[in-house]
Simulated scan of single mutants.
Amino acid sequence: MSDERDETQGVDISEAPGWQAIDRWVTTHFPAATPHQFASRTPYELDEPSPLPAITVFETRAPAGWLYVSYGLSELFDKSAPDPDLSGFGFELSFRLPADNPDGSLNEHPPLWPLKLMQALGHHALSTGGGFDSGHILDLGAPLVPPGSDGPDDCKLSALVCVPDPALGKIDTINGSLLFLRLIAVTADELEILSKLELGALVPCLAELEGLGICDPARGSFLDDPQKSKILRRYKLGIEL
Results as ranks from 00 to 15, higher is better:
residue 88 G to F: 12
residue 90 G to N: 04
residue 150 D to K: 12
residue 126 L to S: 10
residue 127 S to T: 12
residue 77 F to L: 13
residue 153 D to H: 03
residue 108 E to L: 12
residue 11 V to E: 13
residue 188 A to T: 09
residue 124 H to C: 04
residue 63 P to V: 14
residue 23 D to I: 13
residue 133 D to C: 06
residue 110 P to K: 02
residue 114 P to R: 05
residue 44 Y to V: 13
residue 202 L to P: 02
residue 142 A to V: 06
residue 210 E to T: 04
residue 168 L to R: 03
residue 34 T to I: 13
residue 172 D to N: 15
residue 77 F to Y: 11
residue 190 E to P: 00
residue 74 S to Q: 13
residue 12 D to P: 12
residue 102 P to H: 13
residue 67 L to Y: 10
residue 91 F to C: 01
residue 32 A to T: 05
residue 139 D to K: 11
residue 30 F to I: 08
residue 230 K to N: 08
residue 133 D to N: 11
residue 50 S to A: 14
residue 234 R to G: 00
residue 53 P to S: 04
residue 164 P to L: 12
residue 225 D to V: 05
residue 69 V to S: 07
residue 120 A to K: 05
residue 108 E to Q: 10
residue 126 L to H: 06
residue 19 W to R: 01
residue 201 A to I: 09
residue 59 E to L: 04
residue 172 D to Q: 15
residue 20 Q to C: 15
residue 192 E to I: 02
residue 66 W to Y: 08
residue 90 G to V: 08
residue 77 F to A: 14
residue 52 L to V: 02
residue 188 A to K: 01
residue 27 T to P: 02
residue 221 S to H: 00
residue 48 E to T: 09
residue 218 A to F: 12
residue 134 S to M: 09
residue 220 G to E: 07
residue 166 P to K: 06
residue 219 R to Y: 11
residue 142 A to R: 15
residue 15 E to A: 14
residue 75 E to Q: 07
residue 232 L to H: 02
residue 235 Y to K: 03
residue 138 L to I: 00
residue 192 E to D: 11
residue 70 S to V: 09
residue 104 G to I: 09
residue 238 G to H: 04
residue 159 A to V: 00
residue 74 S to P: 08
residue 222 F to H: 07
residue 107 N to A: 15
residue 200 G to P: 05
residue 206 L to V: 03
residue 92 E to Q: 12
residue 103 D to V: 03
residue 10 G to W: 08
residue 40 S to D: 08
residue 156 K to R: 06
residue 206 L to W: 07
residue 113 W to Q: 04
residue 95 F to L: 07
residue 29 H to C: 09
residue 197 L to F: 11
residue 116 K to S: 09
residue 233 R to G: 08
residue 28 T to Y: 09
residue 201 A to G: 03
residue 220 G to D: 14
residue 98 P to R: 07
residue 180 F to D: 07
residue 210 E to R: 01
residue 171 I to R: 13
residue 148 G to C: 08
residue 164 P to H: 10
residue 73 L to D: 01
residue 78 D to P: 04
residue 85 D to L: 11
residue 166 P to S: 01
residue 238 G to E: 02
residue 184 I to D: 00
residue 124 H to R: 07
residue 233 R to M: 05
residue 167 A to N: 12
residue 209 L to N: 03
residue 86 L to E: 12
residue 206 L to A: 04
residue 172 D to Y: 06
residue 62 A to Y: 15
residue 150 D to T: 14
residue 136 H to L: 06
residue 75 E to L: 10
residue 70 S to N: 08
residue 106 L to P: 05
residue 116 K to C: 08
residue 107 N to Y: 13
residue 48 E to Q: 15
residue 141 G to E: 05
residue 151 G to I: 11
residue 182 R to L: 04
residue 227 Q to N: 10
residue 206 L to D: 00
residue 79 K to H: 11
residue 57 V to M: 06
residue 11 V to D: 07
residue 115 L to Q: 04
residue 220 G to R: 11
residue 139 D to W: 03
residue 185 A to Y: 00
residue 194 L to V: 01
residue 193 I to F: 00
residue 28 T to S: 08
residue 63 P to Q: 07
residue 119 Q to W: 08
residue 53 P to F: 02
residue 59 E to R: 07
residue 38 F to I: 02
residue 123 H to D: 03
residue 164 P to D: 03
residue 25 W to H: 14
residue 15 E to L: 13
residue 105 S to M: 10
residue 106 L to H: 06
residue 28 T to A: 14
residue 49 P to Q: 09
residue 112 L to S: 09
residue 189 D to V: 00
residue 6 D to P: 08
residue 239 I to P: 03
residue 185 A to M: 02
residue 37 Q to V: 08
residue 74 S to Y: 10
residue 213 G to V: 04
residue 222 F to D: 05
